[in-house]
Write a protein that binds this DNA or RNA. Sequence first.
DNA 1: ATGAAAGCGCTAACAG
DNA 2: CTGTTAGCGCTTTCAT
Lengths: 328, 328
Amino acid sequence: VARRAGVSSALVSYVVNNGPRPVAAATRARVLAAIAELGYNPSAAARSLRLRRSTTIGLVMPTVDVILAEVMWGAQEVLRQQGLRVVQYDVSHRVDAEHEAAEALIGERAEGVIWVPSTANLSAGRRLAQAGIPLVLIDPPAQAEGFPAVDLDNYRGGYLATRHLLDLGHRRIALLNRAAPIAFSRERACGYRDALRAAGAAVDETLIVAVGPHIQDGRDATMALLDRPNPPTAIFAYADMLAVGALRAAYERGVAVPQQLSVIGFDDIAIAGFLRPALTTIAAPKRERGARAAQLLLGLESGHAPAAVRLPVELVVRESTGPLGPQI
Amino acid sequence: VARRAGVSSALVSYVVNNGPRPVAAATRARVLAAIAELGYNPSAAARSLRLRRSTTIGLVMPTVDVILAEVMWGAQEVLRQQGLRVVQYDVSHRVDAEHEAAEALIGERAEGVIWVPSTANLSAGRRLAQAGIPLVLIDPPAQAEGFPAVDLDNYRGGYLATRHLLDLGHRRIALLNRAAPIAFSRERACGYRDALRAAGAAVDETLIVAVGPHIQDGRDATMALLDRPNPPTAIFAYADMLAVGALRAAYERGVAVPQQLSVIGFDDIAIAGFLRPALTTIAAPKRERGARAAQLLLGLESGHAPAAVRLPVELVVRESTGPLGPQI
DNA sequence: ATGAAAGCGCTAACAG
DNA sequence: CTGTTAGCGCTTTCAT
């Protein structure tokens, strides 16, 4: 392209990437001038064809919610800093869309993929691995099958949340648990049970209810719990979105929070804490989760052994100024 | 690649894209078998090198917040359905990052770009246009410079919001207005002023305050307003995030909502309405905004004339069960 | 209905 | 230090 510009040929290449070979200052200047003149911009396609690599990283996630947007932001930042191109795939919780994304990324000769699986079905991940594409999971299902992964200390989160409620004097503590067989919800449930046992409280399995991921699911499940003859006095929801739904249900039923019902969530939605100071939560790093996944991926490429990263969580009891009535 | 698989050569090409030339059923079957056997997956790079086009669409946005994530989701869905690859660029409100994204997209030979400008600086857009890449703006600055764009009927939104507050009997209505010279905030302010004038109310320019986009900015600005000797009785915030901040300020100052202070926002954050039934808002289509931008872009490529799309907005008064005290 | 071959823009190996 | 050249995997003429 810019060859006819100056007088030279492919040492344009050496100029644009400060090539593996030095270029004489005079020639370099001529090339640079030509580039500026023609508004030249190297073709990423040709480059990746030649190099057999693409500088593309795939980000595959089940949906874009408040949490995941943060997580992915953390990953993007690290990746872009390395000059990598980031392509997002929102697969809308559909396994077939995961496969489409995988094929696209293989065709792309992606350098790596960060994947938040939406189900326990890892077949798309296996396909990627078999195509030789490094893969890092975030929040993996129970059997991660040896894939490197980043997740949270969910057991501890469940334990801390439940113990906090026990410390407040609660004994009938309901658990809103994710229906899907995702490892994190199982682990959170284990922490919940162990905390109860450690306090000498009975584990009432009827207080563990499986719910979907939406705010409305949290509301509906809480409504049903409150309508029971012997309702719980506290609720531990596996996600903050559900905790918000629970608050809404309390509001609709005229149940005072936290006097009649304590609610605790997981993974801190910023706006919820802002609106509802009483909403205690288990806080977990979000941007860092993405960033660590990205770093793990970069580490893999430089030949490191596959590893797992488990990030710590923390109980956050928000300041609650004055008593909170049934109003929201 | 798969040539040696069957016996043929480049009619693999004709098979994979139902090529411009017909292929005999028998040969086709052999090729398909070979493809399956070798797990072949065509190289996107080679394809776009040859075709001199890339099936890549860029999505450039200042940040990923709740609103924008929805807008972009709408765009992605339309684009992916067309078999286009979508690359997101979060430029973190930095103009230089916009330029980086533009250069990357030019190198990519992107088929088109959907761009949410973060400032009134359209230079990165001009660079794209000059490189022959079709461009659609979302929420453009005042002078859109002839770029096709999708935005909202902001004037009407501002008018409706203000009239609603006037109808409730308010006369001292503050406006939290975006500091940056974005067209939408200016238009909303116009609607605000006109509604006041139409109702015969005075426009008090001291009640119009410039604020940043964050929840904390809304809180701080509202705090300052409430601390004035003659505080407003109502607040119209140019974004729902700020309205949430305003609610928080009311809570901290012990001001009852809506008895002592009415708050109205813009562009409906789902979770806010869920938590805070009293929060009235001007609702605007989000996914549709993205989808329309994508459609506009696709229309451009098939030679349509550049156009502007203006989407309608709507006043949403949420059911507010019972009186709301100062508590949140 | 199919093969052969050229060439997209780039980089790496090979001369000068 | 600089110029030439081959070839990445695909699509597309041109020739069979």
